[in-house]
Amino acid sequence: MTRTPAPLADRVDVLRDEVLDTAERGDRDPPGAEIFEAIVRQLAALGDSAGHGGLDLTLHDALARRLAWGDTEEVLLGDADRVFERLVKACARGLRDPEEQAAVLETASDVLTAAARIVALAAVGRAGRDRSARLREEMAQRRLRDALHEQAQTLARLEQEVKESGL
C-alpha cells in the first residue's frame, strides 16, 4: 500500500511548537503565532481550489488586535523576524524536497512583507488619529482659555463687590 504524503501546510504546521518555541514558553498562543498561522493558511491555500492570494484579513485583524492590546509595532516586527528565522531552520531540517522548501520560503516572504506593510499602515492610521485628537485637544484648550478669561473677570468683579460691601 502506498502512503500519500500529508499536504505541505500540515507538515509545516507540525513544526509549530519548534518555530514558536512553545515548549519553553508553555503557551499555545505565543508571540508571532499570527505570523506562523498566516504562513500555514497561505500554504494550505496554494493547493486548495477555494484559496486565493492577496489580502489576508485574518492576519490584518490579528496584528491590529495585538496593537490594540498595547504591543508596539517594533515588538510585532521583532516577533515576525524570530518566526522567519526559526521557520527557515526548521524547514531546512524537516522538509527534504527543495521544491517544498522553496514554496515555504516564498510564502513566508509574502506573509512577512504583508505584515510589515500592515504594521506601517497601522502606524500611519495612528498618526492620523493622533493628529485629529491633537486638534480636538487644541480646540478644547481654546475653549478652556476663554472660560478662564471669563472666570478671571467674574472673580475680579465679585472680589471688588465683596470688598466694597465691607465684608
Binding site: E106, S109, A116, V124, A127, D130, R134
Partner: peptide, 30 residues
C-alpha cells in the same frame, strides 16, 4: 530564495520602522 526572502523582510521591516519613527513625534505632541 532564502537570501532574497531575508533581504526583502529586513528591508520591509526597516521601512515600517521608519514609518513608526515618523509617527512618533505626533504621538508625543498629543
Amino acid at each position: 530564495l532564502r537570501q532574497l526572502a531575508l533581504a526583502a523582510h529586513r528591508l520591509a521591516a526597516s521601512i515600517s520602522g521608519l514609518v513608526v519613527e515618523a509617527a512618533q513625534p505626533g504621538s508625543d505632541k498629543l
